[in-house]
Each structure stands twice: as C-alpha cells, then as structure tokens.
Design a protein around this nucleic acid. Sequence first.
DNA 1: TATTGTTATACTCTATAACTATA
DNA 2: TATAGTTATAGAGTATAACAATA
Lengths: 155, 155
Amino acid sequence: MNEDLVDALAQLSFAVQGAMTEIATEYDLSLVQVRMLGVLRDREPKMLELARHLGLDKSSVSGLVDRAERRSLLTRVASEDDRRSFRVVITARGRELIDAMVERFAAQVEVMTGGLSPAEQRQLARSALQIALADALRHGVDPRIGLLTRNAVRE
Amino acid sequence: MNEDLVDALAQLSFAVQGAMTEIATEYDLSLVQVRMLGVLRDREPKMLELARHLGLDKSSVSGLVDRAERRSLLTRVASEDDRRSFRVVITARGRELIDAMVERFAAQVEVMTGGLSPAEQRQLARSALQIALADALRHGVDPRIGLLTRNAVRE
DNA sequence: TATTGTTATACTCTATAACTATA
DNA sequence: TATAGTTATAGAGTATAACAATA
C-alpha cells in the first residue's frame, strides 16, 4: 500500500477534525453536539432516528439532547401520532450557532487549502467526496447525511 | 468558498477517523490511546512532552498513562537527571498492538481509496500532505512528526 | 521560586441493562 | 408482547485548581 497516502489521509483527517474542534470550542460546544445540530438543520427526527444518524445508542442521545435542550439549542416537541415519542427540533438559537460555525469552518478550509491551485482543489473535492460516498455505502448509511456542513441533498 | 470542498473534507475526515476508531475498537482501545501509542513508537517522552504531542493537559495525560500502564502497554521509567520526572516507554506488547493497528489501517485505506486511479491517489496524497504540513506549520508544530499516530501537535 | 507530575473535582460522552409508558 | 424513550450505573476522557516533591 502507498505509505504516503496512508500517512497523508491520517494527517489530513486530524488537521480537519482539529479545525472543527477548535471552532466548536470557540462556541463552547463539543464536536458531537455540533454534529447533532448539523443533523437537525434539515430534519426533525425522533430520538431513535437521531441516534441512528449519529451512530449512537438511544441512551447516549438522551443525554446529548438533555444538555442541548438545557442550553436552548433544541426542543422536544410532542408527536401527535405516537404519545411515547416526539420530534427533536432545533431552535432559532441553535440554528444561529450551527450556521455561524459552518461559516467559520468554511473560512478555515479556505485557509487550509490556500496552497492548492483551483484545479487541485477541485480534484481534491472530487476524490474526497468519492471516498466518503463509497464509505457511506459500505456502511449502509444514507450518504446525504452531512456531518458538519449543510447536508447537501443532491438528489 | 467552494462548498463542495468544505463538505468533502468534513466527510472525508469523518470517514477516516471512523475507520481508525473501528480498528481501535477491535483492539479495545480508544483513538486517543492509539495516538499515544503512535507517539511512543518513536519517542520516550516525559509527561509534559507527551502532553504537548497529544495537545492535552498534563493532568489528562496522567490518567491516560495510568490506564495504559495498567494494561501493560507502557511503563514509567525513572529519569536519571531529574528525580521529579520519568520517561514514558512503550512495552513490547504495546508495540505489537500499535504495529498491528497501523497495518490494519493501511489495508483499510487501500479499500477506501480503491475507487481512485493510481494518478488520483498520488494527487490526493500530495494535496493532503501539503494541507497537513501547512496546518502543522501554522500551529507552530514540528512538521516532521507525521504518520497516522505521529500526529501534528497543537500548542 | 519555578517546574514536574499527581490528585480532587466536575463535566461530557458512551454503552448496557433495567425501567416506564404507550402501542 | 413490542417499541420509544429515560434512568441507573459504570467507565473513559477532558480541564482547572490545588497539591507534593524536587530543582
């Protein structure tokens, strides 16, 4: 296997996650809270759906939602059809935060990729997306589920 | 900013980190424990140096080292020069583990990048390394430390 | 006094198992 | 019985502040 590629992908992933974590920290949030808000930008899932989106156990999500609700980033809204469940809905404040963080992240990506030519940037985007897409499929996951950035719903 | 690139890098980083985490889990380790073992492959740092390598507070590293030592993955070896401190040294067992995990990770990268042509793989490695390198420099970090576990350090 | 490392404390995040309420 | 969600419990990981031992 191409050692350089292994090394490069590992390092790149730490650099990108590091940037995300720094930005999350600026807003006093953890990375998983940011991911959750990212999911909630485009969806109003029930708890189990949210757990599946995040790849976590429902009990873990109970706590995540508790803490986010305490900070008024989202609310639990009763379901009409099933009185056991409800929808998790992002608040205006939560949306403000995630939008601001995504904007900051985009700016940071611009800094990080500034050394690449436009053609290299396009090629990088293509390759990265292809890898991520194939990986999502291999894991039987909805590949439209974005993580941080707006969930590019490319039908 | 190129929305696609932002999205692609975020998703790629989660895919790569997910692969690493899966492999770590196979060995019943956390990602941070794997990173620590990676650092210790090439170094016998004191606690503060290790903390700097991992970007963590010294108190956090105390706990990490405790748990790893309990599992015989590393040992604390007394310093001759300074009786307050010691060196953190990976054990044969710890080295076996990290070597096996890195090998597994390389195989996984091969799977993940299988859809790219050799030329695309080379280009991806070039771009990713350049980004990681520039990022390390921006963070005032020794860019020689690389490799999966040889992570860039954030001060 | 300054530095190295640990400990006390307090959170977040995570999973498993047991539980409640509803279907 | 089965499902949606919470709670009890346990443990890892993290930081801050206070501490001990050594420099």
